[in-house]
Structure formats: structure tokens, C-alpha cells
Amino acid sequence: KAKLLVLLYAFVATDADTICIGYHANNSTDTVDTILEKNVAVTHSVNLLEDSHNGKLCKLKGIAPLQLGKCNITGWLLGNPECDSLLPARSWSYIVETPNSENGACYPGDLIDYEELREQLSSVSSLERFEIFPKESSWPNHTFNGVTVSCSHRGKSSFYRNLLWLTKKGDSYPKLTNSYVNNKGKEVLVLWGVHHPSSSDEQQSLYSNGNAYVSVASSNYNRRFTPEIAARPKVRDQHGRMNYYWTLLEPGDTIIFEATGNLIAPWYAFALSRGFESGIITSNASMHECNTKCQTPQGAINSNLPFQNIHPVTIGECPKYVRSTKLRMVTGLRNIPSIQYRGLFGAIAGFIEGGWTGMIDGWYGYHHQNEQGSGYAADQKSTQNAINGITNKVNSVIEKMNTQFTAVGKEFNNLEKRMENLNKKVDDGFLDIWTYNAELLVLLENERTLDFHDLNVKNLYEKVKSQLKNNAKEIGNGCFEFYHKCDNECMESVRNGTYDYPKYSEESKLNR
């Protein structure tokens, strides 16, 4: 008799109507990190870190770059004969040098303040090359056809396309004075040089004057150069050297050249137009028929994500570079809930034993079982409120962090190594801060989002509990077992918050 009662009780308990509160689960393989956990499985997430590029040089917003090819900045601007293909260059979106560009200054020497000139050019998007001192009329008392084997072109001695090597005419090199007034309405880049012979005999042979000088002056520039005559090792078949100089001439300003020898005179100059998204990159990537809004030396990035880990040097509207390998923000729920887990921000989770793959029309909802059958029903209101809140948060985070910009490298010469090392340390410090901030932001927001979901499920549970009161009992896994019969209409009233407690209280009292 006792065995019969136990079996009867078990049958009745199993047959009781139930309603459970749960949440969506799926077959997603997404994982995120939080402050407290690593690799948390979630139903949905968004990636904030771009880690792919196309490996190509592309047009930037429809404008092609200027590819210097086998030449570098120095060779292009001075007019190395091997860089003749660059003479027609007028406009570009950015400038590309190759790491091993070999054609710079063909006659050995240095372009002074080269690093600063590169910085200036990094904001130039177009130029006009014009004859600042016409070759045939500007130097009537001097020979202007100086050439050298060091600047050979097609097997013949030649010289820079933008400079003139002035030497004596006959047996004399009379003092020369020439000036140019900038009437271009924009900055003009003027380049010139000073020749330093290897011996007094060479000085006399070329310029006749043993104590020659070169003077260059404008409103913002004033220097006097004296040739340094000295024996030097042979470089590119030359014992002599040429140093090259430049200045930016403001609109309306005048530049005056005065010399008694050794002047490498300007022939062509450049009127410059600035462009905020221009820059110089060093890259071996090849040019393709493609378009982008962000270019790196590795390749083009076409992404609206706020961060990238491809390269710190970028041109155009680019994500911020960070050292992170993963920045994924959760938008959905835990896919593998932890039992009795309390989140960092106070939300209680884990009283549900598992997510439901059968509930596909919402994030949170119900599963019921009664004599009429069983089924899932999503709670659309709480789901939609959660979707709206999380979507707004993700968009806000992306908008705040998605300050796209150009980031170019800084140039230092060989004598500025300590400054370069200090600059690298400062840049590394800023990069570490950006990386830390980005990672911390994602970790915190992921923790908040998961706790937010847990709290929403808990609130749904409490909503049902407050309606049923003692007409049902909690069975410990997020479910309630009714003390009365609850048909589909009754189940719907529980879900929509209109459950009639008094209607079922007498039946429940008897069954309790």
C-alpha cells in the first residue's frame, strides 16, 4: 500500500503543469573576455578590431598615390635624371617610397634638414613645378651647363633637372645676384646647392675665386655659405661634395641669391598645395585598381571598426592602431551559463540550468507544459528593451572611439638618435595607453552587458513569482510547478501579467 502511494505521488508530481523562465541559446562559437572571465561563450557579439588588409596600394578616395619607385624624396625633388618619370607629377593622395629606393642625390652630399622637408611634404597633396630662374636668361655671365658622370643618364654625363651647376664663363666668375618674388599665391619650395671641391685647383678651375661665398636671403631665411675645400674619400667617382638646401617662400615674399662661386642654382621650384589627408609611407606593396579610405604600408583597410592592429602608420580615415589581438564586445547572452554566478555589478545569474535553442524569437521568455502540450514563448517587451539598450551602447562606444585619422611616422637624422629613441618611447607609451583603454573598455562593457542580461532574466522570474504567489511552488531551476490546472489561456495570463490569483487560489489551497 505504501509503495502504491509513492508511485501515485510521483505520477501526480510529474503530471503537474509547469512554467519556466529562460533565455535564448544557439550554436554560436563566439567568445568574449570580461573583467572576471576569459573566453566566455556568448550567443552574439561584435568585433571592434580590424585585423585584415588587402595587401595592395590603392587610390585614396579615388585619387591615385605618387609612387616614387626607384627614387626617394631627395632624388625626386632635386631632379635626379633617373627620376625623370616623376617630373610630370602634379597631385596625389599620398606618397609612396620603397624601403630600398636607390636614386637620391646622384652627386654625393646631403639634403640639409631632410627630415623636416619630409614632414612638410606629408601635408602636401599637389604642386606646380615651374621655372623659377629661366636657364637661358638668368645667368648671362656664367656657364650653366655643368654636368657630371655621377648623374649620368643613358650613358652620358648629366645633372639634376631642377638645378643648374653654374661655373665660370671664360676665365671669370663675376659676382651674381638674382631674385624671385613669389607671385603664386601659395608657398613655394625653393631648392639650391653649394659645391665643396676637393682641392684649391678644382676650386680655381671651376670658379676662378679662391674665397667664394654663397648667400641666400628671404624674410624668414638668411644664410651665408662658404665652400669647404678638403680631400675626401671618393664616392660615386667624386672627391667633391654638394650640400643641398631648401626653404619655403611665403606668398609675396622675395628670395635673393648672391654668389661669387660654388652656387648650384635653382632652375625649377614648386608651388605647394596642402592636403590634410596626405602623407608619406614606405612600402613594398604594389599598386592595383582599387579604392580605399584608409591606406597602410601593408595594404588598404576598408573598415568602419574603431581599432586596427595592422600597422601604426596610416593615411586617410583609419581606425586607431592598438596592439590588441582581440577586441570583441558582447551583444547577446551567455551561451554556457554559470550556476549560481554573481556578476561584478550585482546581477544574479545561473538559476537557469541552460539556455534554450528552441526559443528563437527572443532573448528571454517562457517554456510551459500542461495537458494541452508544451512550447516556448519569447517575452518580446523585455527582449526589445534589451536590444535597444545594447545597440545604443555599442553604437555609442564605437562612435566615441571611432575617431579616424592619419598617423604618419616621424623623421630623425643620424645625429638625432637620442631624440628618436625618446620619441619611440613616448609613442610606445601612448600606444600602451590606447591599447589598455580599449581593452579595459571592452572588458568592463562585456561584464556589464552579461550582468544586464542576467538581471533581465531574474526580473522576469520575479515578475512571475509575484503573480503566482503560493498558487505554485519554485522547483529550483527557474521553473514553477502549479498547484492547479493551468491551461493555455492561464499560461498566457502569466506571461502577459494578467494572471488571476484569486481564481485559482482555492484549487491551489486544496492541492498544497
Results as ranks from 00 to 15, higher is better:
residue 1 K to T: 15
residue 2 A to F: 13
residue 4 L to K: 14
residue 4 L to E: 09
residue 4 L to P: 04
residue 9 Y to D: 02
residue 11 F to R: 11
residue 11 F to D: 07
residue 16 A to V: 09
residue 16 A to C: 08
residue 19 I to K: 15
residue 22 G to K: 02
residue 22 G to D: 06
residue 24 H to E: 00
residue 25 A to Q: 07
residue 29 T to A: 01
residue 29 T to R: 04
residue 30 D to Y: 08
residue 30 D to E: 13
residue 31 T to Y: 01
residue 33 D to C: 02
residue 35 I to A: 11
residue 37 E to N: 12
residue 37 E to F: 03
residue 41 A to W: 11
residue 43 T to S: 07
residue 43 T to P: 00
residue 44 H to M: 13
residue 46 V to P: 01
residue 48 L to M: 05
residue 49 L to F: 05
residue 49 L to C: 08
residue 51 D to C: 06
residue 52 S to H: 13
residue 53 H to I: 11
residue 53 H to V: 07
residue 55 G to M: 15
residue 62 G to K: 10
residue 66 L to V: 13
residue 73 I to Q: 06
residue 74 T to M: 10
residue 75 G to K: 10
residue 76 W to E: 07
residue 78 L to M: 08
residue 78 L to H: 02
residue 78 L to K: 01
residue 79 G to M: 07
residue 82 E to V: 10
residue 84 D to H: 07
residue 85 S to F: 11
residue 87 L to S: 10
residue 89 A to N: 09
residue 89 A to C: 07
residue 94 Y to I: 00
residue 97 E to H: 03
residue 100 N to E: 04
residue 100 N to W: 05
residue 101 S to E: 06
residue 107 Y to K: 05
residue 110 D to T: 13
residue 111 L to A: 00
residue 114 Y to G: 09
residue 115 E to M: 09
residue 116 E to Y: 02
residue 120 Q to R: 14
residue 126 S to L: 04
residue 127 L to H: 10
residue 135 K to M: 04
residue 142 H to A: 07
residue 143 T to I: 02
residue 145 N to V: 09
residue 145 N to Y: 15
residue 145 N to E: 12
residue 149 V to M: 07
residue 150 S to F: 06
residue 153 H to D: 10
residue 154 R to S: 11
residue 156 K to F: 03
residue 157 S to W: 06
residue 159 F to P: 06
residue 160 Y to C: 02
residue 161 R to F: 03
residue 163 L to M: 15
residue 168 K to V: 14
residue 169 K to Y: 14
residue 170 G to R: 01
residue 170 G to K: 04
residue 171 D to T: 12
residue 172 S to P: 03
residue 173 Y to R: 01
residue 177 T to F: 11
residue 177 T to Y: 13
residue 178 N to R: 06
residue 182 N to S: 01
residue 183 N to Y: 12
residue 189 L to K: 02
residue 190 V to Y: 06
residue 192 W to M: 08
residue 194 V to G: 06
residue 194 V to K: 00
residue 195 H to N: 09
residue 198 S to D: 07
residue 198 S to I: 04
residue 200 S to T: 11
residue 205 S to F: 04
residue 210 G to I: 09
residue 210 G to K: 11
residue 212 A to H: 14
residue 218 S to A: 15
residue 222 N to I: 13
residue 227 P to S: 14
residue 230 A to I: 10
residue 232 R to G: 05
residue 232 R to W: 11
residue 236 R to I: 01
residue 237 D to V: 02
residue 237 D to I: 05
residue 239 H to C: 04
residue 239 H to R: 10
residue 239 H to N: 10
residue 243 N to C: 04
residue 246 W to C: 06
residue 247 T to Q: 05
residue 247 T to E: 07
residue 249 L to R: 00
residue 250 E to P: 12
residue 257 F to M: 02
residue 258 E to R: 12
residue 266 P to R: 11
residue 272 L to C: 13
residue 273 S to W: 15
residue 278 S to L: 13
residue 278 S to W: 07
residue 280 I to Q: 02
